[in-house]
């Protein structure tokens, strides 16, 4: 039997009178009350001010809005594999693949890049699944947490906007290395553009 019976010591009369719980409760709440009354709270501790006037300083590793990133050479990293589109729980991502005759990728060796890539920020729940699933490290949850717009259309971010907001991510350049090693081994054909 893997069940372990834990002996509970019966509560003493004093404990059953609720008094110790009430007293320690008074102590804890009084401590927090006095701390706040002196003007300390999470907002003042982190950013020295309150939200609309003083935006919150986002902690490292915060998962905000997902944006597309470029590699060190300014190429689109996304290869339009659509994994993120499939995994996205609220179906916020909509990718238009290039199709058979579509535009080729803007970097060597990668086969495709999306013709259009849209994230509906009204649907996105900042869950991070897309970042988790992306085989190309092409999409990252970044630090923006307060996105506003005056219409629903405005909240659908397209590829251009996502790329410009996303910036550069100095991660691995899978296809560049593949190309280099292929060239090194003189194994062809490898698409070079």
């Amino acid at each position: 039997m893997s069940t372990k019976v834990v002996d509970r010591t019966p509560l003493t009369f004093y404990e059953r009178s609720y008094l110790p719980a009430i007293l320690s409760g008074l102590k804890v709440t009084a401590r927090h009350f006095l701390r706040s009354a002196k003007g300390h709270n999470t907002a003042t501790d982190l950013s020295q001010g309150y939200y609309p006037e003083v935006p919150w300083t986002v902690a490292e590793g915060y998962r905000g809005a997902p944006y597309l990133v470029r590699d060190q050479e300014g190429h689109t990293k996304c290869v339009s594999c659509q994994l993120c589109e499939f995994i996205c729980p609220p179906k916020a991502i909509k990718i238009t693949p290039p199709g058979p005759e579509g535009i080729p990728s803007d970097r060597a060796n990668a086969e495709k890049m999306p013709r259009e890539f849209e994230i509906n920020m009204l649907r996105c729940i900042f869950c991070g699944m897309c970042q988790e699933v992306c085989p190309e490290e092409a999409i990252f949850l970044q630090k923006d947490y307060s996105l506003t717009g005056t219409s629903r259309e405005e909240m659908i971010y397209n590829k251009e906007k996502l790329l410009s907001l996303g910036g550069t991510h100095a991660g691995i350049q899978k296809w560049k290395h593949k190309l280099e090693s292929a060239q090194h081994q003189e194994v062809f054909p490898v698409k070079t553009h």
């Binding site: 709440t29 927090h32 009350f33 701390r35 706040s36 009354a37 709270n41 999470t42 907002a43 309150y50």
Partner: peptide, 10 residues
């Protein structure tokens, strides 16, 4: 106000 302060809110 008291509830906010006790709960570290504003």
């Amino acid at each position: 106000k008291v509830s906010a302060w006790i709960q570290d809110r504003v």
